[in-house]
Amino acid sequence: MNFGLTDEQQMVVDTVRSFCENELYQHEAEVERLGECPRELGEEIKRKVLEMGFYAPNIPEEFGGGGLDHLTFALLERELGRTSMALSVWWGRPSNILCACDGEQRERYLLPAVRGERFDALAMTEPGAGSDVRGMKTFARQDGDDFILNGTKHFISHADLADFVIVFVATGEEETPRGPKKKITCFLVDRGTPGFEIRPGYKSVSHRGYHNCIMTFDDCRLHKSQVLGELHGGFEVMNTWLYATRITVAAMCVGRARRCFDLAVDWAAEREQFGQPIGKFQGVSFKLADMATEIDAADWLTLSSAWRLDQGLDANRQIAQAKLYASEMLARVTDETLQIYGGMGLMDELPVERFWRDARVERIWDGTSEIQRHIISRDLLRAKGA
């Protein structure tokens, strides 16, 4: 792995960071106060990103996207991690699972998403099925050329913005040596389809303004042309396109940690107690040293896992390690930053308490820390036949 950035990669980093600092930071307090990003502001962000030619950077060039490799895209996500997710979501990064679209699906879903004309959301989680994807109860029954969907999804990120949703549901069952196992199929469902409703979700302390939603299907009828991939082939689609999304979480955690760390260093250098800057005290200076070390370690874990994907190497364990370590690192960094700030760290006049709150969800979504540890340990033991 070459540890230096190419000119193109450095340009991506500089451009995205500058955009966040000059166009997005100024709106963060408003988003926190309102609990949402005003639609007109979001559309303005999208317009500017489209004009820069940076929209859909993760989608291959053959479909009109930016065609960034995994490493460069991780660098972009790292910089977007510095700002509010309610704002950065408008820097459109359509789910790359849409690359599985075929024929008319490309004109209806993929290409409009790349052009910024339609917004997508991804739905897997259910009230009774989070990490256990096979435990989902939302079911699609075939009826001639149609499928009839019934069930509920929740914790569906930014579905309130979505024009269509990529939904994974059970479509059958098969017998295995370990007992019955559900077959999973992926569908493309348009907002406004009869029997399909998107409702406001729960109020979360993390990422205010970046909403989760509840989706219900009540005899929702879909044509077979809305199956993404093959019937019962949902896991193949998922494993082909989705597992690298954990790199995005890790990268954004690194970016947010670096911004938070910069605030901690500034405060330690400026805040005085007992006649000197508090950074002079070993109790504070050693915190900074540990934070810097952990951020760098998470950064390299994340970038190296993305690099492995670009080299065509197996990276499942490395991606899990990056997601696990970066999300838990962010929790420690935000907590220590708040400790360095003291009581002021808890006040909403400063962004520290927001970083602290936002950090908590990173150890849960896109695979909990426990799931990541399972992936890592399983990979290690499989090599020994255990």
Rank of each mutant, 00 (worst) to 15 (best):
P177Y: 03
F261E: 04
V12W: 06
I319L: 02
V333L: 03
E174P: 05
E44C: 07
I247M: 03
L313M: 10
T240Q: 12
L87K: 04
L381S: 11
E294R: 12
E40L: 09
S377E: 15
H232P: 04
A331V: 15
D145W: 08
C101G: 06
Y341M: 07
A162W: 01
N22Q: 11
E174C: 08
C260K: 00
A306P: 06
M136N: 02
I59D: 00
Q10S: 11
Y325V: 05
C220T: 11
L24T: 05
R208K: 14
Q311G: 05
G172K: 01
F274S: 13
E362W: 12
A322R: 05
G67S: 06
V361G: 01
V333M: 00
D218E: 13
Y25Q: 08
W241H: 14
E8I: 08
T15Y: 04
H154Q: 14
L350D: 14
R360D: 10
R221K: 12
G192Q: 00
V227F: 04
T193I: 03
T176F: 07
H158C: 11
L50I: 11
N2A: 08
L338N: 02
L188V: 07
A383S: 07
H70A: 11
R363Y: 00
K153A: 05
A322C: 03
T245H: 15
E353N: 14
Q142V: 10
V227M: 02
A289C: 13
